[in-house]
Design a protein around this nucleic acid. Structure first.
Lengths: 142, 142
DNA sequence: ATAATACATTATATTTATTCTAAACTATTG
DNA sequence: CAATAGTTTAGAATAAATATAATGTATTAT
């Protein structure tokens, strides 16, 4: 597996030793063809299906949070009963389909640069995220 | 109290009968000089302090959610351990101070119209929210 | 008015995501 | 190969949100 080095590197940089469990988490997160959204539960399920390694919830939480701190994963700002995470850490935005409870990426090129004219003294902007909530477009109803 | 009629109206339109408890909730939410952000717990505490009415958590949850459905309150899209709500239902955005866990309104005039070029077939955009996360601006650290 | 009915409130229990804990385990170092 | 530092895990603890069921209150029809 040629990816192992890259995963070990990511883990070390996140302050974590490269263990079996953590490398498995990396494989699921960073080996995918496309970036994707997930909840912790979904991630655990994917690991269980793909591997014959058992990884506990606690390990998954800890690893995911270490990656977020380091910027290898992003948390998606959504009010939901559970947190959604994103393996796409490039600057981009989201549609949230309120009827299907589904997130859809919006490439940053599809949104004009968000220009905020106001500043807060002593503070700087670290990130800007746009959430566009969408619903069915039934022309008939107002 | 000249406001009572207005509250009764809001409640009726939300499908709720105007009861003592619900009117008290309205007074706290809609009688303030300025709009504000709150969590359910904070709201309960304000009511307890302002009035000698006891209102249960369940009633507060139900009433707040009815108002959200009707558009009299907004939920702020933030990943936090508890939900934040806003009495400002006009179109506007937020700074979220990650160090102090504090929300700051950004008036819509302070953000250029967010133009999303992409559409999803059969769906229309219901709302667009911008969250700008801010942190201390210590020029010294990278 | 008052009985019957529909809706409200509340305390409490339940559910569920997340965090914490402590014991068992593994790898690394001296 | 013993000591130490860091890991994993199952299960406990926490806390927000929701559901429940008993009691209370308002409304309606008689």
């Amino acid at each position: 597996m040629a990816y192992a080095e890259q995963y070990i590197d990511k883990l070390r940089k996140s302050g974590l030793r490269p263990t079996k469990q953590r490398i498995k988490i990396c494989e699921v997160l960073f080996d995918a063809e496309k970036t994707f959204h997930f909840t912790i539960k979904e991630l655990v399920k994917i690991i269980e299906n793909q591997a014959n390694i058992k990884v506990s919830l606690a390990t998954v939480y800890n690893t995911v949070h270490a990656f977020i701190r380091k910027g290898y994963l992003k948390e998606i700002p959504l009010n939901a009963s559970q947190s959604y995470y994103d393996t796409n850490v490039t600057h981009h935005h989201h549609f949230f389909d309120e009827e299907e409870n589904k997130l859809i990426d919006i490439h940053q090129d599809d949104v004009d640069e968000v220009n905020i004219k106001r500043t807060i003294p002593g503070k700087k902007i670290r990130s800007v995220e746009v959430i566009a909530k969408i619903v069915s477009d039934n022309q008939s109803q107002k």
